[in-house]
Computed example of a mutant assay.
Amino acid sequence: MATDGRLFGDGTRRSKGDQARRYNLLAARLIAELIKNSLGPRGLEKMFVDIMGEVTVTKDGATLLRKIDVEHPAAKVIIEASNAVDNEVGDGTTSVVVLAGALVQKAEELLDIGISPSTISEGYLNGLNIALKALNDISKEYDNTDRQVMERLVRTCIQSKVLAYDDKVAGFVVDAVCTIANFSSNSIDTDDIKIEEIEGMLDAQLVTGIVIDKTIDSSAMPRAVENAKIMLINDELESKRTRADAEIRITSPDQIKSYGEAEALMIKSKVRHIIDSGANVIFSRKGINTLAQHLLTGAGIISVRRVKENDLLWLAKATGATISEKLDHEHDDHHEHGHHHHYDHPHDHDDHSCFAQIPKKCVTSAIVPLLTQFLYCEISLLGRR
């Protein structure tokens, strides 16, 4: 602790009065200068590299401002304003920062000619009231089921971000929102819309259901199933791997054979349990070995292994199925299958995507990757109608 009565260490400077005010205005203006050239369809993308080396390339103002680390209070206020608009509206995050930066710049000019800060603040508040009144005067009320209005909103949002886009993308967004929206109660959960990037797709596609970016385990399995009965499992259909190093001491060839037969018997027992359950499509978070794949193929069952945990949760939410942790008869009461209207593994996506269609449950948009970061804005915008 310092003995000379000082509260702060060496190198600390104190500013007050007009100097402190100028520093605050400068910090706010620098944040606006940082992202203002990202605004509009001709805006530039920004690249941000964090301390872990992860690279983020985006022209979305809110995404960039959430990444950067600032300490200045005035700069934080601008960032919080952008986040507030993002949470409340879903779009306009860059615009609000650019507008705030312009107001700060004009405030500096007014201070230079001797106008007091209180007068400038009062003038800005009066201007806000005038702007709000003008917006209320020109605003119109529409029914929340008016598709034309919703599509115009989406087009306006997209056109402010990209120079060229397929006009039917706006229809995809509106279709997705209308599928999951409850118009009678004016409620919508935009988390029920999943955006999936699929490499090699040349066109956007909307699927009423779930898209899993995985291939089926065997080419001999069926490619499509109508009225599929889905089973979600989190149990291994392969040899178990120990968490620690382990070894098995075998002294004779018969023991090797017995060990292999015991493993095969365990796999066959689990597969028999799947077959007896009546499921014809299974998604597993863990592995499925070649023996299990062969047995499932013979029973006409489609299997997809090593599905991501989030995708498995999506499937459980969409189908109403429970995730089976153990494949044995002792846990039969904990198994509940999900039902799909249609399951498909199309040939025209390089064998990397499974489509599971569920009417009126949830929506997955398989889209062109260029539009990914923008579609979140449009969905959020319509979700706050």
Rank of each mutant, 00 (worst) to 15 (best):
I282N: 08
A228L: 02
S82T: 01
K257Y: 11
R42D: 11
D332C: 03
L110S: 04
A262P: 09
V77C: 07
N186M: 03
T156S: 11
P222L: 06
T119V: 14
M266D: 13
K133Y: 01
D69H: 12
G114C: 14
Q159Y: 10
N136P: 00
G287E: 09
D69N: 13
I282T: 10
P73N: 06
E45F: 15
G53R: 11
Q357C: 07
W314P: 06
E196L: 14
S239H: 11
K59P: 04
V85G: 07
T56A: 02
Q205R: 13
A228P: 02
A220N: 15
E247M: 09
K36V: 00
K326T: 08
S258F: 12
T251I: 00
E238S: 15
A164F: 15
K168F: 12
E247R: 08
T12A: 10
D332N: 11
K286Y: 11
K360T: 06
T372R: 15
D4F: 12
N129Y: 05
D348P: 04
T156Q: 05
G123D: 09
E45T: 11
H340C: 13
F355N: 01
L381T: 00
A2C: 04
A321I: 04
G338R: 03
L295R: 02
E336M: 05
I31R: 00
R29A: 07
G383D: 01
E325I: 12
E80N: 04
I216W: 02
R152T: 05
E151L: 06
G40Y: 02
K240M: 08
L265W: 07
K317D: 15
R152I: 06
E336R: 07
R29G: 01
S160C: 11
L232H: 03
D344F: 15
T63C: 10
P117K: 15
F374S: 01
M1K: 15
I379A: 01
G298K: 14
L125P: 03
V271E: 02
A28N: 00
H72I: 06
A318P: 02
L265R: 01
A204I: 08
L265K: 09
S353L: 13
S116Y: 13
T364R: 07
K229D: 10
Y124W: 14
E88Q: 15
A134K: 01
E141T: 14
R29W: 03
K46R: 11
